[in-house]
Amino acid sequence: MDVTQTIGDMNQTQDANQSNDESPVVATSLNSDAPPFVPSDSSGISGSGDSQTQTYGTFTLKVPLDSKIWRSISASTPQNHRILSKKLSVPPVPLPINFISAANNHNLMTDVSSEGLICIRRQDNIFIDISLDGAIRVACPTQKILICVSAMATNIVIYHPNGRIFQSQSHVDVVAFDGTYQNNLVRYAKFWTKGISFMARDIPVVYLVDEGGLRSSIDNFVHIRNDYAMEVFNSRSVRHGSCAFVDAVNMMQKSTHTLRNSSEIFEINQIRIISNSDGTISIDRPTKSITIRINPRKGGIAVTSFHIHATASMGKSPHLFLRQGDRRLHFDGTVFCVRNGGYSAGFDERNQVTIFNKKVTLPHMNL
């Protein structure tokens, strides 16, 4: 006997079907009342035999009336997969949320947001957010620069036109590209226990530089997403939100603001912010050995912590540089080089894997 029924009626007729089938029918977890399961035409249902063809708009589904198949569908969880474009696309750096009234008022330099964050605006549209637990977020939307440091200073994420760096404890992930858009080169690297793994987007081979030299390897690399900034900024930070507003106001009232020579010094929550006349801004947190320097006029940054030292610049010498102990990474938009255990390797200007003889040195960072 032919059976014809809609997906919306399936949940209502399961008891009757279960009595006629040896295997019990498990209710599907899919919402049959939500698109695209709502049929565009009630007459677009036809079927005969053991299967039905149901048309919903542009979707055509063949639904076998078999309890085992329905049980398998009900037990599965749909997964969302991100399709990455083959072209180099640098997403815009997201602005920190709740940027307070200072974002639209040039006369107001400091404020407390509704989320209990101490918000500071300096010259050249530099926005600095500080939580009561000491987390730091520095943003320069005009240069697409965003830096976040967690409250315990164990996690750091850096967004820059020349690349992205995500550091968690001793593990560091890097993606480097040419911020001047003179080429379409993208490089990936990972600092971990075995050494430094690296690869190029257009070369399907992973290389590892360890104490024994250069070798091919099998490894995975993290796609550093935009939302890592919020994850790092809120990591191990419990005193934020509307409940922290009063404490943030009290912290603001205890801050100090002084002028020394041509520098403006603002101290709050054991964090010192120094604004210089040349546009350079320094944020220091001595208790956690954190130093952040940014010059939006040259697109330059320098971040130093207990785990890493990173610099990047869009000035006369565009580059991305990372140091962790005796390990190095340097990318100038064309040549990519990593160093570990006395061995240097990477990709040369011809996009060929190369073993370099000279050491990777710290580039001159003139902020």
Rank of each mutant, 00 (worst) to 15 (best):
V138R: 09
N366T: 12
T256G: 04
Q253Y: 13
N276W: 01
D348P: 13
I165Y: 00
S344G: 01
A189G: 03
N184G: 07
N184A: 10
P363E: 00
P204Q: 05
A102R: 07
I301W: 09
S235H: 10
A200H: 05
L61M: 06
K86M: 02
D278Q: 04
S237H: 02
K359V: 08
Q169F: 10
S235D: 08
R164S: 14
V172G: 03
I308R: 08
F245N: 11
K359R: 11
R225N: 06
K86C: 00
A135W: 07
S313A: 15
S51A: 13
I136P: 12
L132K: 00
D9I: 04
D284K: 10
M230Y: 13
K194F: 08
L322Q: 04
I301K: 08
I283D: 09
G212Q: 05
T6R: 06
T334I: 15
R350Y: 13
F127K: 02
R71Q: 15
S114L: 11
G195V: 04
S277M: 13
D348I: 00
S29R: 15
I147N: 01
V174Q: 01
D202C: 03
H223S: 05
M314T: 10
V249L: 13
G195Q: 07
A16T: 07
G299A: 04
S344A: 05
F331W: 03
C148W: 06
F347N: 05
D15R: 09
N104Y: 08
H81G: 04
D9S: 12
A16Q: 10
Y343M: 02
A200I: 02
A312Y: 14
G279Q: 04
K288Y: 09
G195Y: 13
I268H: 00
S101D: 13
T77N: 12
K288T: 13
S23D: 15
L185Y: 15
G346I: 06
R215H: 10
A312T: 14
V186D: 00
Q14T: 12
I145H: 03
P318V: 02
T110Q: 06
S72C: 09
P286C: 07
V149Q: 01
F191A: 01
V205E: 06
S43F: 12
N261I: 03
C140D: 10
S305V: 07
S313C: 15
E267A: 07
D227F: 10
S168M: 13
P78A: 05
V246G: 04
G57Q: 05
F356R: 01
V175R: 15
S101C: 01
S242V: 14
G134A: 06
K62T: 07
D326Q: 09
T256Q: 07
P204K: 07
S235T: 12
A229D: 02
G57W: 02
K68P: 00
C337V: 15
T311D: 04
A102E: 11
S48Q: 12
N295Q: 14
E267I: 08
